[in-house]
């Protein structure tokens, strides 16, 4: 039915060799949160992330418990904020909304405060990149 040495080896992987699942990431599209008002855009982003990823942490905990393998990071990743915030320019408002949503749902990180500039950079993306140091210093989850 089962091989005890296989089971001991698997248990040893977790206990002695520290096997874990490094990260579970849930991707959330926030493209539909675009608005020309920074406040409205940030509110939509908060609502969408807090609503759609609310089960991520409890489900990861259930998986950890059932399989006995720790999941080190639970993470949400969103559509690059440089795209979503371009219409309003409210990048920092979106960052704060993402940070609040991350705190609310209990994830370790929120990814996606980024820009796709590998094929050239627009003025809006340049403005976005200028906000990165301040945003990273003033948020916990981003």
């Amino acid at each position: 039915m089962f091989n005890p040495s296989d089971i001991k080896e698997t248990l040893g992987m977790v206990k002695d060799q520290k096997l874990d699942v490094r990260t579970v990431t849930m991707a959330v599209s926030i493209l539909d949160c675009v608005s020309d008002s920074p406040k409205k855009c940030a509110q939509r982003v908060y609502d969408k992330v807090a609503r759609s990823a609310r089960s991520l942490v409890p489900v990861c905990r259930d998986i950890e418990r059932e399989y006995g393998i720790p999941i080190v990071n639970k993470r949400v990743s969103v559509t690059p904020v440089a795209l979503v915030g371009a219409a309003s320019g409210g990048y920092e408002e979106i960052a704060l909304a993402l940070d609040r949503a991350g705190e609310e749902i209990g994830v370790d990180y929120v990814g996606g405060y980024s820009a796709l500039v590998q094929k050239g950079i627009t003025d809006a993306e340049s403005a976005f990149l200028g906000t990165v140091p301040h945003v990273l210093a003033s948020t916990k989850k981003l």
Partner: peptide
């Protein structure tokens, strides 16, 4: 005492 779903042991071996 620990309890884990059996699938994890099958998946590993």
């Amino acid at each position: 005492v620990s309890m884990q779903r059996a699938e994890i042991f099958d998946a590993m071996h």
